[in-house]
Amino acid sequence: MTHKLRAEYGPQGPAGGVRSWHVVRDEDPATALCGRTMPDDAETRPEQEWGTGLRCCQQCGSLYMHETPHMQGSHPYS
């Protein structure tokens, strides 16, 4: 499964900057993992930018971590 980041804007829209980044699945880019509906014109970034200092939705981040195998092979029992 692959993901993307989608921007949530404040009351001023894109001109006011990104309020938060949400994680969406590629097969449903209109719905964030947290359940928020994302506008069609929301800026999109690759999932590799998650965890790079962007202000991301905490709920999306938690669910993303459960869906994405990070650092496979780094745990002695994996």
Rank of each mutant, 00 (worst) to 15 (best):
M1I: 11
M1G: 15
M1E: 13
T2M: 11
T2W: 07
H3Q: 06
K4Y: 06
K4W: 06
L5N: 00
R6L: 04
A7M: 05
E8Q: 15
E8L: 11
E8G: 14
Y9W: 05
Y9R: 08
G10L: 04
G10W: 00
P11Y: 12
P11I: 10
Q12T: 12
G13K: 07
P14C: 03
G16E: 02
G17I: 05
G17R: 07
G17L: 05
V18G: 02
V18R: 09
R19Y: 08
R19L: 10
R19H: 08
S20Y: 02
S20E: 15
W21P: 02
W21I: 04
W21D: 03
H22V: 00
H22D: 00
H22Q: 07
V23N: 06
V24P: 01
V24K: 06
V24S: 01
R25M: 10
R25A: 11
D26W: 09
D26A: 14
D26Y: 06
E27A: 15
E27R: 14
D28V: 08
D28P: 01
P29Y: 09
P29E: 09
P29A: 08
P29L: 04
A30K: 10
T31R: 10
A32R: 02
L33Y: 04
L33A: 08
C34K: 08
C34Y: 00
G35S: 04
G35F: 06
R36Y: 11
R36S: 11
T37D: 12
T37M: 15
T37S: 12
M38N: 03
M38T: 00
P39Y: 04
P39L: 11
P39M: 09
P39H: 10
D40I: 13
D40W: 09
D41A: 14
A42G: 07
A42T: 09
A42L: 05
A42M: 07
A42K: 01
E43S: 11
T44R: 09
T44C: 07
T44L: 06
T44V: 13
T44H: 03
R45K: 13
P46V: 01
P46K: 03
E47H: 12
E47V: 12
Q48C: 12
Q48H: 15
E49V: 04
W50L: 12
W50E: 09
W50I: 08
G51R: 11
G51T: 04
G51Y: 01
T52I: 00
T52P: 06
G53R: 06
L54S: 00
L54Q: 00
C56S: 15
C56V: 11
C56R: 06
C57H: 01
C57T: 01
Q58R: 13
Q58M: 15
Q58G: 14
Q59W: 05
Q59I: 07
Q59P: 07
C60F: 00
C60T: 01
C60G: 00
G61N: 02
G61P: 08
G61K: 03
S62E: 14
Y64W: 08
Y64K: 04
H66V: 13
E67K: 15
E67L: 15
T68C: 12
P69H: 15
P69Y: 11
P69A: 14
M71S: 13
Q72M: 11
Q72N: 14
Q72W: 06
G73M: 08
G73Y: 03
G73F: 05
G73A: 07
S74Y: 07
S74K: 12
H75Q: 10
P76H: 11
Y77P: 03
Y77F: 14
S78E: 15
S78M: 10
S78K: 09
S78N: 15
